[in-house]
């Protein structure tokens, strides 16, 4: 009995303040009938298992292999992505911005965390962090350096601050050495960071 009490006390002390407060709020909202815990489970699970950057990678790989699709994507990314059919539906005002030898695109939300969830999943912690939000618009080369990325000094950098309900996905350049690759293999090298603008696809990094 004494041991049990001890164990109980030990478990309790390991629950942090925030864990306790979140648990309390969920309890209250459930008891009041505002939320259904089973629905909450499903909401959590959707982003843990189903929605992530693979969706965006499929879109990019298609754009690399199908010029008509690429043109449609740059014109209206929501419509083009939804036309693919095999990916989960994409909401309104997704905008694809294309990297070229002259211009590299970088997406940020200086005010908070706006991000194209449906094609990239939930944003990483760094995207929502003060260092990224403060520096992306004033020192983008420094930020890219934090990701180990150095662009030629004369490459223009275009920063997209997501200050409204439009959402941006970067269409990176297809790397050399991938000419004979199929769509599926191409999608594997399109990382989340490539589609935010803090990474570049690497033909040799294929696992």
């Amino acid at each position: 009995m004494a041991d049990r009490e001890h164990d109980h006390g030990h478990d309790h002390s390991e629950l942090s303040d925030i864990q306790l407060r979140v648990r309390a709020l969920e309890t209250i909202l459930t008891e009041k009938g505002y939320v259904d815990p089973a629905a909450l489970d499903t909401l959590v699970e959707s982003y843990e298992t189903r929605i992530g950057p693979k969706v965006g990678a499929q879109i990019v790989a298609r754009a690399w292999t199908d010029p008509q699709f690429k043109a449609a994507l740059l014109k209206d990314a929501t419509a083009a992505a939804n036309g693919l059919g095999h990916i989960s539906p994409v909401g309104s005002h997704l905008i694809a911005v294309e990297n070229t030898p002259q211009t590299h695109n970088l997406v940020v939300c200086t005010l908070c965390s706006c991000y194209p969830w449906e094609v990239l999943g939930l944003p990483p912690v760094w995207y929502k962090s003060a260092p990224y939000r403060s520096r992306a618009v004033i020192d983008p080369r420094g930020v890219l350096g934090d990701f180990g990325l150095t662009l030629p000094p004369d490459t223009g950098i275009r920063i997209w601050d997501s200050t409204a309900e439009t959402r941006f996905i970067v269409l990176p350049m297809r790397p050399a050495g991938t000419e004979n690759w199929g769509e599926e293999r191409l999608a594997e090298i399109v990382t989340r960071d490539c589609m935010i603008g803090t990474g570049l696809p690497q033909a040799e990094s294929r696992k």
Binding site: A39, L40, T42, L43, S46, Y47, R50, I51, S88, P89, V90, G91, S92, H93, W117, E118, A164, E165, R167
Partner: peptide, 12 residues
């Protein structure tokens, strides 16, 4: 509702 793919609202 929760099981449906999440889709952003349209603000236009």
């Amino acid at each position: 509702d929760a099981a449906k793919p999440p889709i952003r609202g349209n603000f236009e």
